[in-house]
Amino acid sequence: MKSGKFWAWVVFALSAAYFFIPLLATFEFSLRLRRGVHSFDAYQIVLGDPRFQATFMYSVIAAIFTIILGVLVVVPAAYWIRLRLPQLRPIVEFITLLPLVIPAIVIVFGYIRMYGSNSPLPFLASDLGASSLLVIGYATLSLPYMYRAVDTGLRTIDVRTLTEAAQILGAGWSTIITKVILPNVLIAVLSGAFLTFAIVIGEFTMASLLNRPAFGPYLQNIGANRAYEPAALAIIAFAITWGCMSLIQILSRFAPKSANRPN
């Protein structure tokens, strides 16, 4: 086992080098805007850029709507399947996994052809419609993560028993949903939400093909035209992703512990 430990260290050290060198190099590079000294000028320029602010805000709002839409689509379905229609589970799980198989660019291509200005449902005829379609596309992309997060949350709290207990106590459906189920799956929903946020915030393909003023196309534009600012943006993006993942980890500590599983 001694040599096993040695190899474990070797593997770990090599991986650490592969992952940290680019991050450190990017950070160092982002400080080089001003000749000869290290400075945060690149960050100042980026953060002060009104287009950065506008596109970032646009993407944040799109992300929020995505999360709301995702919750509205996923939570009732996941709940209902646990409670009433377990026989639909394989079908629903299959569908939620499709976005991992069908590339985003294919999905958005389908939207453009199906919901173009001349189609019966002309989403793309107006700005608002196009933005809605973007949110819809993002919700589709996040479906696998959202569904899994919520379903895991529902499994740990044993919704069926909770619901029946609430019914025996005379609670109506609205009470059951808002007072019993939602608070218990809130953590799971929020985890799914932050993951969705991380995926969606810098998304390029859909935003660009739907021609939306989102953060992704802005990043692309800066990347094609500037030298040091993209490095600063990469660091910012990494920090945002890190933030989302940390929030998920912190949340998981507050998640209800399973009532019916051993250990």
Partner: peptide
């Protein structure tokens, strides 16, 4: 989850 454009920027700054 760190993919897409920022990943490319990081590698351009590195390599």
């Amino acid at each position: 989850n760190f993919a897409g454009l920022p990943l490319a920027f990081a590698f351009i700054a590195t390599l």
